[in-house]
Design a protein around this nucleic acid. Structure first.
Lengths: 194, 194
DNA sequence: CACGGTATACACCGATCGGTTTCCATCTGG
DNA sequence: CCAGATGGAAACCGATCGGTGTATACCGTG
């Protein structure tokens, strides 16, 4: 009955593989070899191909599994008593903080979409879903915040989010001086969000 | 004396290689094999390695050569009689138009920076230079336009530019309904650009 | 015409790619 | 104690990777 309950000492091969895939594909790009992935995970290639149909499938699963964590990292700690404006600005504050890490390389989902230029790739589908969820969250807050055009504001915010994360990840820009906050504030004000 | 003057009928192998490198690395990513590049250019591998030290060097040269074209595509046709605001908005208008092409895959320089995560890679250096020049152009127009903080506005504009081009290239967003114009206008207004 | 540079075709190098196969060690439930 | 499932080590597959070596065909110039 239990699917993964016995793993008492250390993580299951499946979990180790998914973690390794997330880490290595983020650091080195989706072009990492399965050989390197399995070595990092301490799992044989044989086991990996029993657990997943292909490298692409494992990559997609790995990305999908990370979505809740990704969203939790950007979620305001107190969704109840915070204002929509605060919740939106919090997302960008977290982005600015995360981008200061030496190993920050931008939003992993946007990176996947850029690297695999094929929109039909299973990993691209997952990445698009993750980005769509971020937009939807901005949209909900934009509506609650009384934006004149919540749909427009939400799209503007993801535009800034992706531009900022990509540029910070590529080390062409720094976000630690209030750049995103200033930009988002201007957009929120223009949209009439209180 | 003359470097490339004899090429009367068709382009030199060097030019064919650089064009093929630009096209294929844009369509398929920087991971394209040199075999495919040489086939596309109609040049033998041997000739390529006589003309360039390595694949990386050829890629960097190819990107560098494209910078003037890239900038010309975004340049207002009448720099003399146009206002700074018009010139800035023109850049985004061209971006919105270009993004409607079926084979648009985003800004090639940002893509290179995202794909090769190594900032020291020769192609990354060139790509960073191209992005820096765009920022500098925005900065000049922001100053001339009387922006309160030209440096800030210029950085905000490249943020929007890269976010929009990346998302449009990844087919997660469409720019044909005035999204970027609305966003840039809000930022220009907030900065006090007339 | 003979020359030297340019470009070609093609085989080759070791390494790695995604993926498969065989064999064996280990663990667990009956 | 034994059966069967699980998972790991390593060889192997054809293909491709970036890069070279060799030998030949073309070219304008002397």
């Amino acid at each position: 009955m239990a699917t993964t309950e016995k793993a008492s000492r250390k993580a299951s091969p499946r979990d180790r593989l998914l973690d390794a895939a997330a880490r290595l594909s983020y650091e080195d790009g989706v072009g990492v070899g399965i050989e390197a992935l399995c070595r990092e995970a301490g799992v044989s290639k044989r086991s990996m191909y029993q657990l997943f149909d292909s490298k692409d499938a494992m990559l997609a699963t790995s990305l999908e599994r990370r979505i809740p964590l990704y969203e939790a990292q950007l979620a305001h700690p107190d969704p109840g008593s915070s204002t929509p404006r605060e919740r939106i600005l919090y997302v960008f504050d977290r982005l600015a903080r995360a981008s200061q890490d030496a190993d920050y390389h931008g939003c992993p989902y946007l990176a996947v979409l850029v690297e695999l230029k094929d929109p039909a790739h299973p990993a691209s589908v997952v990445a698009r879903e993750a980005k769509e969820r971020l937009r939807a969250r901005f949209h909900a807050d934009a509506e609650r915040g009384g934006a004149r055009d919540p749909g427009l504001l939400a799209r503007q915010l993801v535009l800034v989010f992706d531009g900022a994360s990509a540029r910070a990840g590529a080390r062409v820009e720094r976000l630690d001086d209030g750049l995103v906050t200033a930009t988002v504030t201007a957009l929120l004000d223009a949209a009439g969000v209180r």
